[in-house]
């Protein structure tokens, strides 16, 4: 069985390699103008060049920083506020519906408001990223807190646990699958908003890099940037999966 999985994996990589070869052929035969579509060879060369000169490194780190700070701030605030609302019945009655109402709001629409208030600054970007990323986390936390098995609260009562102990030992772990799912969604939101803010505010990062490359019709650099953004999305989501698997090991045994 395990050997079979490896063979499938290899075959799957071969297919992906086939697509890259096809892309190379399309580029070589100039089926699409090289101004728009560089071959994978040129994109790869640009990636290497960018990293050896250090240009791309600093852009990558810029984007990662925007994303990480915004996401972390959103996670902390989202879990704290979500826990506060989710663990109190009056808050759930009075506040939660307003939040649910705001959920379908396209968060990027607050970018102009943030620009008006804070200008084209790093602070504006972090605020927008955090604001966008907080929703899935906060709503998932509220939901997770509201869905805690009532029997566990009774166990906590008969053990005379303090309110703080109940939150940390019962409610938070019980809500953790929801919270982590929310954090995973937010990771994607944070990456997208980082790119948008970099494009709009000209902040140091991959978003700005791809835009400048496009303006200058340096398609190889442009594709290098896009590939790097794809890798960023992939690596962060894999890291999140690993964290989830570790933290939720107890869930695997439940199925």
């Amino acid at each position: 069985m395990k050997g079979g999985a490896i063979i499938w994996r290899v075959a799957s990589f071969a297919v992906a390699a086939g697509f890259i070869a096809l892309w190379q052929l399309v580029a070589n035969w100039k089926l699409v103008s090289p101004v728009f579509l560089p071959g994978p060879d040129r994109a790869w060369a640009s990636l290497l060049r960018g990293f050896s000169s250090g240009d791309l490194w600093s852009k990558l780190i810029g984007t990662l920083e925007h994303m990480a700070y915004g996401w972390l701030a959103a996670s902390i605030a989202g879990i704290a506020i979500g826990a506060m609302i989710g663990s109190s019945r009056p808050m759930r009655t009075y506040v939660a519906p307003s939040l649910e109402f705001l959920r379908p709001l396209p968060v990027s629409a607050i970018i102009p408001v943030a620009i008006a208030a804070f200008g084209l600054t790093q602070g504006m970007a972090l605020l927008v990223i955090a604001f966008g990323a907080i929703w899935p986390i906060m709503l998932a936390t509220i939901h997770g807190f509201a869905a805690v098995e009532p029997r566990l609260y009774e166990v906590a009562r008969s053990l005379q646990m303090s309110r703080l102990a109940v939150i940390f030992k019962i409610a938070l772990p019980s809500a953790s699958p929801d919270i982590l799912a929310g954090m995973r969604l937010s990771l994607t939101v944070a990456l997208i908003l980082s790119v948008v803010c970099e494009i709009l505010a000209g902040l140091d990062g991959l978003g700005h890099w791809v835009l400048l490359s496009a303006r200058a019709f340096r398609s190889a650099d442009l594709f290098a940037g896009v590939i790097l953004l794809g890798v960023t999305g992939y690596v962060t989501s894999v890291a999140m999966s690993l964290a989830e698997r570790r933290l939720l090991a107890w869930q695997a045994s439940q199925r």
């Binding site: 098995e149 029997r151 566990l152 009774e154 166990v155 009562r157 008969s158 053990l159 005379q160 030992k169 019962i170 772990p173 019980s174 953790s176 939720l248 107890w250 869930q251 439940q254």
Partner: peptide, 22 residues
């Protein structure tokens, strides 16, 4: 007036009364 630690209760639905993450 409230539950106390020296009185322990064993619930029927053990599946719900245990912490699945511990």
């Amino acid at each position: 007036l409230q539950p106390r630690r020296e009185i322990a209760i064993v619930f029927q639905d053990y599946g719900k009364a245990l912490l699945p993450w511990r």
